[in-house]
């Protein structure tokens, strides 16, 4: 494999200057668990790599009032090390816990998972349910892009080539809300999702009804997808099993799962409904309601 240059800027300005000077062949890299594999598979052929791991201020969690600012270079193991995060955003930690392996979570970053924009990216569904936005910094300054508008195709996102994702801005859902994430795989570790799904539910003040609901699924379309039919079927309804089952039947038109060597489209469509009931039940159980958890609570 031909040799390339490797750069370690320590400021965003320096990173952007390097990207401008090195040209379109230069590629950003953070944990490298995607970039290094794609390069070896010859699906990516960068002339230079610009590491974002040494840029100041890109790693770590900042709780600011009603918002969590999640630095793009925060590793997946840092996410799991933060107990407060599991209590407040369990759908996200459910997802991170089943990603890759310990070795991968030690280096892979939150920002990397979002920028890779894979249809199966495990953090993407929880982040979509939470209404997260991406803060991008580029030649023309800074902008905040809602995640709902960020994924434009398989492994394609709305960032311009030089733009750097600096943080994910996650509105905190509050005490009457909880979530859950389920990943369907053939084995427990080191596997891509056959299907993944996140749910975030908000209860009414009296706890009887679902005031708001967000549902997102992966590997059912070219991008991770909000399931609006299911969300509508949950909103305003009593928090009962019958409601969850009706919502599962309301999953429809927006999904276009494919047959693949991993599993069939038919199986994906069937399991999508099963996962919705399981994930929503787990979220409601976490809110103290009498529902079954889909797995052991840590």
């Amino acid at each position: 494999m031909k040799d390339i240059s490797y750069h370690k800027p320590i400021t965003l300005e320096e990173a952007l200057t390097l990207k401008r000077e090195l040209g379109p062949g230069a590629h950003y890299i953070s944990g490298g668990t995607d970039v290094m594999v794609l390069r070896r598979q010859r699906k990516l052929d960068p002339t230079a790599l610009i590491s974002l791991l040494h840029v100041g201020g890109l790693a770590g969690l900042r709780w600011e009032g009603e918002v969590l600012r999640l630095g793009a270079a925060t590793t997946l193991c840092d996410i799991l090390a933060d107990r407060g995060l599991h209590e407040r955003l369990p759908a996200l930690t459910d997802a991170v816990r089943v990603m890759g392996s310990t070795q991968m979570r030690n280096v892979a970053t939150m920002g990397g998972n979002v920028m890779s924009a894979a249809p199966s990216g495990d953090t993407l569904c929880p982040l979509l349910c939470l209404g997260a936005s991406c803060r991008l910094v580029g030649e023309e300054g800074e902008r905040l892009v809602p995640l709902d508008e960020f994924f434009v195709g398989p492994r394609q996102n709305a960032a311009r080539p030089e733009e750097i994702l600096t943080e994910l801005v996650v509105p905190l859902p509050g005490p009457r809300s909880s979530g859950a994430f389920i990943k369907l795989t053939r084995r427990a570790a080191l596997d891509l999702a056959l299907l993944n799904m996140a749910v975030q539910l908000w209860l009414s003040p009296d706890g009887a009804r679902l005031e708001k609901a967000r549902v997102a699924a992966g590997v059912v379309a070219p991008t991770p997808l909000r399931l609006c039919g299911a969300e509508e079927a949950l909103t305003g309804q009593p928090a009962t099993t019958a409601t969850l089952e009706r919502a599962a039947q309301a999953i429809g038109g927006e999904c276009s799962p494919r047959d693949s060597h991993r599993c069939s489209a038919w199986y994906r469509e069937e399991m999508l409904r099963v996962l919705l009931v399981r994930a929503a039940s787990t979220a409601l159980a976490r809110l103290g309601l009498d529902f079954a958890l889909s797995g052991p609570e840590i």
Partner: peptide, 25 residues
């Protein structure tokens, strides 16, 4: 490709797969 763990080493106290870790890091 980071999927079998045979190349695992410890860097700054954390296990990682050396086959997909840039030497420069």
């Amino acid at each position: 490709a980071g999927e079998c763990g045979a190349c695992t080493v410890i860097v700054d106290g954390r296990a990682l797969t050396a086959c997909i870790y840039p030497a420069m890091e």
